[in-house]
Structures are given as structure tokens and as C-alpha cells.
Design a protein around this nucleic acid. Structure first.
Ligand SMILES: [Mg+2]
Length: 225
DNA sequence: GCGACAG
DNA sequence: ATCTTGTCGC
């Protein structure tokens, strides 16, 4: 699975797919008071396999469930096309959640929402396909312009080419890099920012995403069992 | 042609 | 993301 084996024709096809799905993304106010089940998603890799994890937390950020799935990698990492690499394994995790009759009220992803060249980061991409509210929480910027916040707790808007706010850059802790928050689907930049801020505890990342990442690393230890 | 470039 | 030990700061 190498970049050189991905033709320019396929890239163009995937871009059209993103531009098509983009039209289904809904940016709207989200009623945080009605959120009781929160999920966090992340994926790790080893050998030629992907290990996806979805953690489920309740309103008080207590871990109530963890599901994971492992499968061969089918697509390389190409900036702007992360969803095509991680969505397959993530969908398998959601199938397992479905079997347990667990349906999150909102899902946080390790990556961007609409703060993407074609407005369809992994959080938006999966949010539309799953028809569920999602938020993207990235550790680095992929698209957009912003002045990085210098004070802890401060946030600055992330703008697209037209000067529209597509998310926020937020500095959560001292001596740490800022994080980028953008709505994926069925949420807004402002609501996403405030909600994510409420999920940040002792670490720079919000609990859902932090725990999901923790388990992607932790579960690799049992890969032989 | 030169940078930017999620995980 | 992954390959990897100690070390600085909270
Ligand atoms: Mg990740």
C-alpha cells in the first residue's frame, strides 16, 4: 500500500466523492444539554494492519464501554484523504457498538471536521455516512488561516478562503501545542469549541479522544493473543 | 517552482 | 502513524 500505487485518476475520483458528500454536511446549533452518551474514535497501526477503537463515555466522562476491531490497511495516508484510510476500520467498530445497542449522541474524532480543503475531514465524512453529530479535534492544522492563541484557555477562529469561520484553534494547557476544533456534522464551530472545552480534564486532549488513543496503543500489546 | 501537508 | 530513552516541566 504505497502512495505511488494511487493513480491521479483515483485521487480525482475521491475528490469528486468528497465534493459530493460535502453537500450533505449540516452545520447547525447542537443542544449540548441533551447529550448523554459521548464517543471518541482513533486508529493505530502495526505491521500492515489498522486497529480502530471507539470508547463510550457517559455525561460525567466515565468510561462505560470500549470496542475495537483489527483489519488490514487498504489505503495509504495522504493529507486530505485520511477518511479513506481510517473509515473502514471505524465502521467495523460502530457495527459492534450497534450490536450492543449503543448509539452515541455525539462522536469526537482524532482529525478535522469541516476544516478541510474540500470541507470534508474525517469527522464530517463519517458523520454524514453515519448520520450522527460529530466533531473533529486535531493536533495539527490541515487547512485554514488563524493566529495561534498565546494564552492558556484562549481560542482563536480558523478561517477558510472566504473568511468564514470553520473552526477554532484552542490552547488547552501550559507548555503544550494548540488543538484545532471544527464541527464534523450536525454541530457548529462555536458549540463544538465549547463542548470540547468541557471535555478537557488533566490533558490537552478531550477525554473521549485521549482515551480512544490510549486504547489504540494499549490494545496493540494483546495483538498476539 | 516553492511551501503546506489531519493521522 | 511508526521507529525509540532519557529528560524537562506541570
Ligand atoms: Mg489518530
Amino acid at each position: 500500500m504505497r502512495n505511488e500505487f494511487i493513480s491521479e485518476e483515483l485521487i480525482q475520483k475521491l475528490k469528486k466523492e468528497q465534493n459530493n458528500l460535502r453537500q450533505k454536511v449540516t452545520i447547525t446549533e447542537l443542544d449540548i444539554s441533551k447529550i448523554n452518551i459521548i464517543a471518541g474514535v482513533d486508529v493505530s497501526y502495526f505491521e500492515d494492519k489498522a486497529l480502530g477503537v471507539v470508547v463510550v463515555l457517559n455525561k460525567d466522562l466515565e468510561l462505560i464501554d470500549v470496542v475495537y476491531s483489527i483489519d488490514k490497511v487498504t489505503f495509504p495516508y495522504i493529507p486530505g484523504f485520511l477518511a479513506f484510510r481510517e473509515a473502514p476500520i471505524i465502521f467495523k467498530c460502530f457495527e459492534k457498538l450497534r450490536e450492543k445497542n449503543i448509539v452515541p449522541d455525539i462522536v469526537l474524532f482524532d482529525g478535522h471536521g469541516i476544516a478541510h480543503p474540500r470541507g470534508l475531514g474525517i469527522a464530517s465524512h463519517i458523520g454524514v455516512l453515519l448520520n450522527i453529530p460529530t466533531i473533529g479535534v486535531a493536533k495539527r492544522k490541515l487547512y485554514g488561516k488563524c493566529v495561534e492563541p498565546k494564552r492558556v484557555g484562549q481560542s482563536t477562529p480558523l478561517f477558510d478562503e472566504e473568511g468564514k469561520i470553520i473552526g477554532y484553534c484552542y490552547l488547552p494547557k501550559k507548555n503544550s501545542h494548540p488543538i484545532y476544533i471544527s464541527p464534523g456534522h450536525l454541530s457548529s464551530p462555536e458549540t463544538s469549541l465549547e463542548f470540547v472545552k468541557s471535555l478537557i480534564k488533566k490533558h490537552k486532549l478531550p477525554e473521549p479522544t485521549r482515551l480512544a488513543h490510549y486504547y489504540t496503543q494499549k490494545l496493540k500489546e494483546n495483538k498476539n493473543i
